[in-house]
Design a protein around this nucleic acid. Structure first.
Length: 215
DNA sequence: TCACTGATCGTCT
DNA sequence: GACGATCAGTGAG
């Protein structure tokens, strides 16, 4: 887990804005997809576009490990999935169903295709901007689901390949502890659908998927 | 709350 | 030409 030093989190109610965010270094990130998927829970995803900072505390991830038939990197490297083959800490942003963007964090060494899908988060800063981008969403739904969170944080294909450990429009900061990590099967896949590679903060009201998966 | 369905288009075979 | 790591709307229980 990647936490702000000396700060514990107990409440599930909306958090106050982080006073100062510490950008994660690449050495903070495990060179292991499953470990990284768990570590990213509680971390802060920061987008700074249109002159507005929007932040979200990650509460749900999925691991797409090397050799995983459900992973976009499974067959071979292509122009689309190239970012998954970058060394850990890079963004893989892709368009799904012609309408929504989803964001992954590359998770292994260079040349190994794997990533962690960011599925849901708890909105922290920039909530007005998020609401402007998704006017019909309620507060708890703003960053619920991979397509929704990308819309709320203005994450587009233009950010594909970005180094999330460097200064830029999208980066990851140290967050706050997750009190209990739940595990389930991944959502929306048909290959390797029985593998327990989805991780979430137990009890969070911001989780996607059916309730039965979040117990 | 869950199941079902249409929307929509880039990517890959 | 088929498919997809999704979402929102609708209707049923």
């Amino acid at each position: 887990m990647i936490w702000v030093r000396g700060r514990a989190r107990r409440s599930l109610s909306p958090s106050p804005p982080e006073p100062r965010l510490r950008r994660l270094r690449r050495t903070d990130l495990s060179v292991d997809t499953v470990a990284l998927a768990r570590e990213l829970l509680g971390a802060i995803l920061v987008s700074e576009t249109d002159g507005v900072r929007c932040t979200m505390r990650i509460v749900e991830t999925e691991a797409y490990v090397p050799g995983d038939p459900a992973a976009h990197a499974y067959r071979r490297e292509t122009a689309r999935n190239r970012s998954l083959f970058l060394r850990r800490g890079h963004a893989y942003v892709y368009l799904i169903y012609g309408m929504y963007c989803c964001v992954n964090v590359s998770s292994e060494t260079a040349g190994v295709g794997a990533g962690v899908l960011i599925r849901s988060g708890e909105p922290l800063e920039g909530i007005d901007a998020m609401r402007a981008r998704r006017p019909r969403a309620t507060g708890r739904d703003l960053c619920r689901g991979p397509g929704n969170l990308a819309t709320s944080l203005a994450i587009t294909r233009a950010l594909d390949g970005l180094d999330l450990t460097s200064r830029g429009p999208l980066w990851i900061a140290a967050g706050t502890p997750v009190h209990e990590i739940g595990t389930s099967v991944r959502i929306g896949i048909t290959q390797a659908a029985d593998r327990l590679l989805r991780f979430y903060e137990h009890g969070s009201p911001h989780l996607s998927g059916p309730r039965a998966l979040n117990r």
